[in-house]
């Protein structure tokens, strides 16, 4: 009788401990996930079905926003095209390729100079967005006071360059790429460092030159970091617009109006909160679709590892 009751109390103590551990280990992630990822989407869906404007008052529930979105908004197509171009160029040229190039070259340098160059490429990320945008405004100034024109006109004797008016897409890709490259650089650098030194020695003895070593040894080891950076930066570029807003404000005309910026302007500059909410649902849908697609394509399931500490 007593032994039976002590057995029950032991098992109930174990159950309590299991519950406490679950709260302890799963709790923070669950709370954050709900507060910052699920709740905003729920609120967004709710607002999208109202007529909420600047007054924040809801007078009726309606599907008018979606009707407008599907039939009566000629901006969606062009802004989507701009977004696609912008994400593809920034990702392809800077965040992945240039980040990789920086990691490969700085890890081949002696440790100190490598760290120095990496630190330089981190600087844009450390400066406040507004300061960074202001620097760009000075660099691209269309008069001969702009830095580019000081060089182009003053030193090289060329015609004055006006990036903002003539090459706005190039401008926002450059401005975002200079910041974005450092993330890939850091991730790739640590991945390259993690490659056992003996593999490089073996490859050299086996006859591989420097480029062959990169191709056969380094790049295969960077498969997962490359996948991760591609997915992560795609999603991040899809929704971020602050530098574009600050540097070109989507212009000239709608040439650099990425979709996220368009949503922002509709919602907050025109005061159409409900319509903005409906538009942003498109971004949510694209983000989820892109993640699932890349998860599949890049076989990222294999990245999942068994836990290092097993909690019961």
């Amino acid at each position: 009788m007593t032994s039976q009751s002590s057995a029950t109390s032991r098992s109930s103590a174990a159950a309590r401990r299991q519950l406490a551990n679950m709260a302890l280990f799963m709790g923070p992630a669950t709370v954050l996930l709900f507060m910052f990822f699920i709740a905003p989407v729920v609120v967004d869906v709710f607002v999208a079905f109202t007529d909420m404007g600047r007054s924040l008052r809801v007078t009726e529930f309606t599907t008018a926003n979606f009707e407008r979105l599907l039939t009566n908004d000629s901006r969606i197509g062009p802004t989507m095209a701009v977004t696609f171009t912008y994400v593809l160029l920034t990702l392809g040229i800077f965040n992945v390729t240039f980040g990789l190039l920086l990691a490969l070259t700085t890890t081949a340098l002696p440790e100190r100079s490598g760290a120095f160059f990496r630190a330089i490429w981190l600087l844009p990320r450390m400066s406040p967005s507004v300061v960074y945008a202001l620097l760009w405004a000075w660099v691209i100034g269309p008069t001969d006071r702009g830095l580019i024109n000081q060089v182009a006109v003053g030193w090289l004797g060329l015609e004055p360059v006006d990036l903002l008016s003539n090459q706005p897409m190039l401008l926002i890709v450059l401005a975002n790429g200079f910041i974005g490259a450092s993330m890939g650089m850091i991730i790739f650098t640590s991945a390259i460092r993690a490659i056992p030194e003996h593999l490089f020695h073996a490859a050299r003895v086996d006859g591989a030159g420097p480029l062959a070593v990169i191709w056969h040894i380094t790049l295969p080891a960077l498969r997962w970091p490359l996948s991760f950076i591609t997915v992560y930066q795609t999603l991040s570029l899809l929704v971020s617009f602050e530098y574009i807003w600050l540097i070109t404000n989507g212009g000239p005309f709608y040439d650099t109006m990425v979709f996220a910026l368009y949503v922002y302007k509709r919602a907050f500059e025109n005061g159409q909160y409900a319509y903005g909410a409906a538009l942003s649902l498109i971004l949510v849908a694209i983000g989820i679709a892109a993640s699932l697609l890349m998860w599949r394509l890049l076989d990222m399931k294999r990245l999942l590892q068994t836990p290092k500490i097993e909690v019961q």
Partner: peptide
């Protein structure tokens, strides 16, 4: 003479097989 031109075979303590 660089390693790749010496025609030397080497076995490392960690074997250093290419993992992929």
């Amino acid at each position: 003479v660089e390693a790749r031109d010496r025609n030397v075979g080497i076995v490392f303590q960690s074997y250093a097989l290419y993992p992929h």
